[in-house]
Structures are given as C-alpha cells and as structure tokens.
Amino acid sequence: MRHIISILLENEAGALSRVAGLFSARGYNIESLSVAPTEDPSLSRMTLVTRGSDEIVEQITKQLNKLVDVVKLLDLTEGSHIEREMMLIKVRVGNGGEREEVKRLADIFRGNIIDVSPASYVIELTGDGDKLDAFIQALGGITILETVRCGSMGIARGEKSLHL
C-alpha cells in the first residue's frame, strides 16, 4: 500500500542523507521525497512517499523515528489529508493550433502558462499525482520538451498537525 509520511527533522547537514541512506540500506523504496526548511529555520519538513505492506511501513516509521535527526513523524495515510504536487512542464508549440490547444488544456486543468517563447510554453500545474499524470496524457500529440515534478507534499486535514 502507498503511504505518505511527513517528517520533521533537524535542518542539519547530513540529515537528508541519513533518511535516504536508511531506505537504501534496508531495501525500502522511496517513490518521492520533498524537503525544505519550515517557518522555524532549525527544522526541515520532509514528505516521503513509500510503498509496502503494513509490517514494512511499521518498520519504516520505527526506523525513521530511531534516527537521531528525526524530531517527529506522522503517517498521513492514517487520517484524512491533502496531497499536492507541483509540475513545471515545457512543451513545443510551433503553430497557432498547438498554442490554442495547450492554452485550453492548461485552463481546464487550472494550470498557468508562466513562460512563453516563439516555440514553447512552460506550464505550471498543481494537484495530486493523478491530476498531473492526467494532464500529461491529455497533451496527446503535443511534444513535451521536459517535465519537472517536485514530489508529493502532504498535510493533515483539520486541527491535527505535525509540529513541536
């Protein structure tokens, strides 16, 4: 089963590699990982998406908790939560038809075209992973020049929160 785990960790050199190293050393898989400092600069917030049986995910959370740099952790999958991912995608739009088509698709998906050149657009799109996949599908015959996705970020719904 897919699990989305939120981690507060010390914003210190090496903390990220401790987490990444744990996954490779113990053979767990990481589907995506995103990390950045929080409003408290001494803390980083990481969202990690992994897959595994209940037993494996239980071990993953225990092993993560054991890392000295991990301050707190929450398996968002256990409750209702919101998940978002951001994508920047550059497509080739050579003629008027393609430009129209991509503009319309971006509007449907509530994306923004944030860069325009004579032959390309960069579209910014936010949503869960499925929505981003669907957008890529929908581009159909349009040539994709590159995609950049940030990996899932997650937060619990309601008053439940991961903080110190």
Binding site: E55, E58, Q59, K62, Q63, N65, K66
Partner: peptide, 11 residues
C-alpha cells in the same frame, strides 16, 4: 528498549 526491534521479524 528499541521500538524498532519489536515485531521486526516476528510479530
């Protein structure tokens, strides 16, 4: 003393 040792291989 180590929670990660518990139910690691045997439930």
């Amino acid at each position: 003393i180590d929670p990660a040792s518990i139910s690691k291989t045997v439930k």
